[in-house]
Amino acid sequence: MTQLALVIDLNTCVGCHACVTSCKEWNTSGEAGPMVDRNPYAKSCLHCEDPPCVPVCPTGASYKRPEDGIVLVDYDKCIGCEYCSWACPYGAREIDEQQKVMKKCTLCVDRIYDETLPEAERKPVCVLSCPTSARIYGDIHDPESEASRAINESAGYQLMPEWSTNPANHYLPRRKVKITVHEEDLQRADNPLRKEDRGPRAPTSRTTLDDSTSW
């Protein structure tokens, strides 16, 4: 079964906010929009595999798609009761005070299946815009996907796994590079200073051992 998700690489994310404003730009005029100015920026939903925001919804507006694991809100059914946002431990949902419906990240569901877009662009817009390619998108149930490989190779982890939400989004940790300098590295035969080791040469007329001893 497919579970689409984002894997976010904290080793390269510089906090530039490109994902944030491009999300707003795409979605405010898109299927999920408009995005309101209050709490202006939605957070990425983690598209939990066991999403607590779904069972609490009294109308069934909050749902998880079986075919790809995306968690969505059906605006036509949503009554704006905000139970789901209370249930979400990650703060991923924001009520739209104007439309009185719950809004959240859709994993750009209106891009990823849109065949009028070039294939390379059928990705969440935050992924496309990220200058450090810190956002990897893919099916984390497919062990061959770039997302799964990144999780496996770079010790990807979930946020607050103890809540048993089993979030589909993962984070890759910071990795620190160090340089080790060995003592010997500073003592080399090819040290260029040796080429300059000159100093004024002593005059040959000066007294040396040659003049005073006979072995």
Partner: peptide, 12 residues
Amino acid sequence: INKGVLCAKGAS
């Protein structure tokens, strides 16, 4: 220059 990516300003 940007090979497809944008920044927060560019996307606004």
